[in-house]
Amino acid sequence: MKAKVTVTLKSGVLDPQGRAIEGALKSLGWKGVKGVRVGKSIELEVDEKDPQSAKAVVEKMCEKLLANPVTEKYQIEIITDR
């Protein structure tokens, strides 16, 4: 089963990349842009049959390795084949 993990910085954590991108977007004319945050997207496949157990496995991966709980939060999307 495929999963997509999005890791982003927690809201209080300064994001210099996001700030620089926001500045660039403003200078390109999008004056109203705000709250730009940069994260990581990780795609993976796990050997699980149902979405619930896949999500549980990926959650453990996030806690242990994929995200740093001090600075980052994560979102898991399980991609079920249609």
Binding site: V13, L14, P16, Q17, A20, N68, V70, T71
Partner: peptide, 17 residues
């Protein structure tokens, strides 16, 4: 050591990138 939890906190990208 911070990643391993042997020291508190974390080290992030320099503010000047």
């Amino acid at each position: 050591l911070t990643e391993a939890g042997l020291l508190p906190g974390a080290l992030m990208l320099n503010s000047g990138m």
